[in-house]
Design a protein around this nucleic acid. Structure first.
Lengths: 206, 206
DNA sequence: ACCTGAACACCGTTCAAGT
DNA sequence: ACCTGAACACCGTTCAAGT
């Protein structure tokens, strides 16, 4: 039997999501409108509502597409490495698409991203291994997510502003990859504050 | 001499901001549009652009209005209390207005809130007293802000969803103030993780 | 100095009717 | 099962012209 109305799992829904991701990458989230998406698919805007309940749900599906590479199963190591790797993979996935951090941040806040729920659960699990009480684990996981999303939204808006020609080119003496390494080290600093804080609460800090 | 065009410091600008805050409190951020704001002020939408460059700037001014009570000068105590009090006053201010957390979060990300810059500077200062290297102080301050904003956006959306009649009333056996006390303790837990993390990096944890 | 009127170029969403 | 056509009720922003 076919999928229920507005269950975005059909083949047509997949093509809608793929085209939406294309628009996101090429023009940014401001240009990802229902009408434009429909136009580029050579359909009418109303037809999208046969596949998705509303725009929020569609953006949630695009967010989950962006997050696909961040959800490969990680090795089972100590909790510190699990948190670090999950956070870095999340940041990398967001930076791989124009306005990726903003899109995922909005979809997470709206409760529309299944993969963000999955990442949250993995982080919460890791904090339990760190010694956090089970009733505080979800909040501890959310705290890490707030940091990663906040940091990366900020980072990406600066990166895209600079890439749009506003930067003085002398500012970074090295190549763009070096700029990413620089903010990458900043990212790790903030993350280590959180991990150290979790270790202290558990009574076992390195 | 009068103020420069689009410097939102005049008396008319203040009345615009006051009316915008009123709309925010009574109807939420989705209803805070330039056209509706103009209508309630009995002017034309275009006239708002004589006082504000664009909607982002106006929302930034409203955000700073929301943040006014969060910026009273705090006592000079130890860095832990300065961080705790600044965070709690920020959260309290956000919870005092409908969609306050969402508004301030967006304005902070857009770099449109002078008072958020001030709060960030105070937090960064406190982390220096905690022993954070000066080149990392702003990031440490931002990390605290990411937490407070992320937590409070979440908390407020749940509170407002529940207040809109979606909750089972048996759920919290006590009065609404008790529900706030509960999330208040959750807020303090996450904050203490960050403070402990900062203390560890400085080598002096309590 | 401040505001109007009118336009420009759009939005998200619904729904009867078609195939 | 899926899409069209057309409507509904809006948006932010600009700018010549008025007072």
């Amino acid at each position: 039997m076919p999928q229920h109305k507005r269950d975005p799992s059909g083949e047509i829904a997949s093509r809608i999501i793929a085209k939406a991701t294309e628009i996101l990458d090429n023009y940014g989230i401001a240009d990802l409108t229902m009408r434009r998406l429909a136009r580029e698919l050579d359909v009418t805007a109303g037809s999208l509502y046969w596949h998705f309940a509303d725009k929020q749900q569609l953006l949630g599906a695009v967010a989950d597409e962006v997050l696909r590479p961040a959800c490969d199963t990680a090795e089972a190591t100590d909790w510190q490495h699990r948190i670090t790797e999950a956070s870095q993979r999340l940041r990398d996935a967001l930076l791989s698409h124009t306005d990726g951090a903003e899109l995922v941040s909005a979809s997470f806040a709206a409760g529309q991203s299944a993969r963000m729920r999955q990442i949250l659960a993995a982080l919460a699990d890791a904090t339990v291994d760190a010694g956090v009480a089970p009733e505080n684990a979800e909040l501890a996981g959310r705290t890490i997510i707030y940091y990663v999303l906040g940091f990366t939204v900020d980072e990406q808006s600066r990166l895209q502003w600079d890439a749009a020609g506003a930067l003085e080119p002398e500012r970074s003496l090295l190549d763009p990859r070096e700029a990413l390494n620089h903010t990458g080290r900043a990212f790790e600093f903030g993350l280590s504050v959180l991990i150290d804080g979790l270790a202290v609460r558990a009574g076992n800090f390195s």
